[in-house]
């Protein structure tokens, strides 16, 4: 009874931990050999300890147990490190100024300047947009460049290798060198994929429901994304969030109609050209703005009146550039991870 319970518990434990065979196709291990008599075991033990020097016994112990000891040590040390880290950070948090207090040191003269003069200086109703695309536009340029670089890296890692992966071999079964005549087709053409090609087919192809939903929702999604991008200086949103919404429309199109349909208007070359063009436009526009500002030249960029759609100086074109880069990059990530090519 107890043995059965122990066996059941061991199987349950293995199942929860995830190692060992699945319960349904588990192979019952053969019975262990019967135990040696006690005196024989004692004899073996004594001989093992007496006949061999300490160093060799230590080496044997090290070989058998070192991995186990190391993993236990690692587990303990990492738990200890995390708890220490948490205690340190929590004691720091207890010393921080109060949450939501207007007199905190973070609310300093920088914020005062951004809020009081930002309207006249940048012309944007959304102070955050005015900050990240005018005062700190160089930072946002770096962000877009980081995103573009990540997309290019993923393209290099996943895209370029895939094309050379599939090769065809043919085997002539009737001319095998052992001279045995085999039944079946005389020759065999095999298309062998030497690399691992990930393919995610979460949806059936030509799914009528998905296509119907896509027809209805893709125009709305594109409209929402364009609204968020174009109103970036007037309302919450901007290039990054609007670009993410646009990329969702592309992903839905790819899932409903297949990646081949998206390739008709958006492929690798289009992506690289558009992203590079958007980054270059961003760099030229903002470079002129920084150059003229640093040398006290009149830049000639109208800020417009707050609240109108054509206001905010360079913020609207910069938002459009960032939106293009983000939409292409996020769709590119999706396509590369699921199909292996943009």
């Amino acid at each position: 009874m107890f043995e059965e319970f122990k066996n059941l518990w061991r199987r349950f434990y293995n199942w929860t931990v995830g190692n060992g065979p699945r319960p349904e196709n588990e192979v019952i291990p053969p019975e262990p050999p019967p135990d040696l008599p006690f005196t024989r075991r004692l004899e073996l033990k004594r001989s093992r300890f007496q006949e061999r020097p300490l160093a060799s016994r230590y080496n044997e112990w090290l070989e058998r147990k070192s991995l186990h000891v190391f993993s236990m040590l690692y587990l303990g040390m990492s738990i200890l490190t995390c708890l220490l880290f948490m205690a340190l950070l929590l004691s720091t948090v207890a010393e921080l100024p109060s949450f939501g207090d207007a007199n905190n040191p973070v609310n300093n003269e920088v914020i005062k300047r951004y809020i009081e003069r930002g309207g006249q200086e940048t012309g944007a109703q959304n102070i955050v947009a005015g900050m990240i695309l005018d005062y700190r536009a160089f930072d946002t340029f770096g962000e877009s460049a980081v995103l573009f670089t990540a997309a290019i890296s993923v393209l290099m890692l996943l895209g370029a290798v895939r094309r050379a992966d599939t090769e065809e071999i043919s085997i002539d079964l009737n001319n095998a060198s052992d001279g045995i005549l085999r039944r079946g087709p005389p020759s065999l053409n095999l298309k062998i994929t030497t690399g691992f090609t990930p393919r995610i087919h979460m949806f059936r192809k030509n799914d009528a429901i998905l296509r119907g939903v896509a027809v209805l929702s893709i125009p709305a999604i594109i409209l929402l994304g364009l609204t968020v991008i174009i109103n970036g200086h007037l309302s919450p949103g901007g290039g990054f969030s609007g670009g993410a919404i646009l990329s969702v429309a592309l992903m839905l199109c790819a899932n409903a109609y297949g990646f081949e349909q998206v390739h008709a208007f958006f492929d690798e070359h289009v992506f690289i050209r558009f992203s590079s063009l958007a980054l270059m436009i961003y760099a030229v526009l903002k470079g002129w703005s920084f150059f003229s500002g640093a040398n006290h030249i009149e830049s000639g960029i109208p800020t417009g009146t707050i609240g109108e759609i054509l206001s905010g100086g360079l913020i609207l074109p910069l938002n459009i550039c960032v939106g293009l880069i983000v939409a292409g990059t996020l769709y590119g990530f999706y396509a590369l991870f699921s199909e292996g090519e943009i």
Binding site: A102, V106, N107, V110, I111, K112, Y114, I115, E116, R117, G118, G119, Q125, I127, V128, M131, I132, R136, D139, I306, G307
Partner: peptide, 15 residues
Amino acid sequence: WVNQVQAYVNPVPAG
């Protein structure tokens, strides 16, 4: 347009 500091939260962490 209200442009007093006392009206808005800190915009820098959002960026």
